[in-house]
Computed example of a mutant assay.
Amino acid sequence: MQYFPYGGRLRRTLWAGLLAAAQLLLVGPALAAQVVLTDETGAPLANAVLLVDGVPSLPADGYVMDQIDRQFVPHVLAAPVGAEVDFPNSDDVRHHVYSFSETKPFELRLFKGSEAPPVIFDRAGVVVLGCNIHDAMLGYILITESPRFAVSDAQGRVSLPELPPGEWPVSWWHSSRLQKGPVSLGELDLGQEQTLSLPVSAAQARPVPMLSPLQQRFKSGY
């Protein structure tokens, strides 16, 4: 009988490959999860973040918080820990962007176009943005350790492409929670288009301007 010294190893490799292929067949192909988020009245909830844990992350093209028509665009940006965020100014006036948030205090003094350097966010948490020139400007950045996340559009729609099928831990965040973290929804199967109602009132869903540093000092009496 002929002896094959690597026969056992070869058989084990083949079996491992077959088992991996069988697991892929059982799990099925990745899907694009389509979810609609609503407030407590059933109205579409924009600018809410849906987060999914326990799944692989996807590469990102980059993270941008623009300033258009004297507003932060997008109003809410979600990004992973360690993300580098660009702050271009597409307006024809200068802006002075700042944040006093514990997650990432920073200041980008008067700038236009692409003059401002990117900001690296190395801690998970909420970053509230303001402009020292235009008090009505308000924006949020949610820095998260979750591998997958998306922000709802004006119709409350959230799209999560290439999400593995199955039940995964899902949570949500909205600016009405300010410095509080995401809220768990438990393990959900997002494989079918569905609507999730969140405990956010219509009043909470509307952006509320915050005080500028000068206004805060004035209100405090110094």
Rank of each mutant, 00 (worst) to 15 (best):
K180G: 08
V73N: 08
V55I: 10
Y98W: 03
V81T: 14
P5D: 09
H134E: 03
P105W: 08
H174Y: 12
G62V: 03
G191E: 13
P29E: 07
T103V: 11
L142S: 03
H134M: 00
Y6P: 01
F121P: 06
E167L: 10
V36T: 15
A33N: 07
P29Y: 02
R123C: 10
V208W: 07
V170Q: 13
N89I: 05
G186E: 06
S146K: 13
F121M: 15
Q194W: 01
F72P: 02
E107A: 00
P5W: 06
V73D: 13
T103I: 09
A30N: 14
S171H: 05
Y140I: 01
L77R: 11
I120V: 15
P207T: 01
N132I: 03
E84Y: 08
K112V: 04
Q216M: 14
S197K: 14
V64N: 07
V183R: 02
G156A: 09
A83I: 15
R12P: 00
G125R: 15
L188T: 11
L50D: 09
T195E: 13
V170W: 15
P29L: 05
D122H: 14
Y63C: 05
I141D: 11
P80N: 10
G113W: 08
G17L: 15
V55D: 06
E167D: 09
A78Y: 07
L198Q: 07
Q194P: 06
V85W: 13
A83T: 11
L196K: 10
L45F: 02
E40F: 01
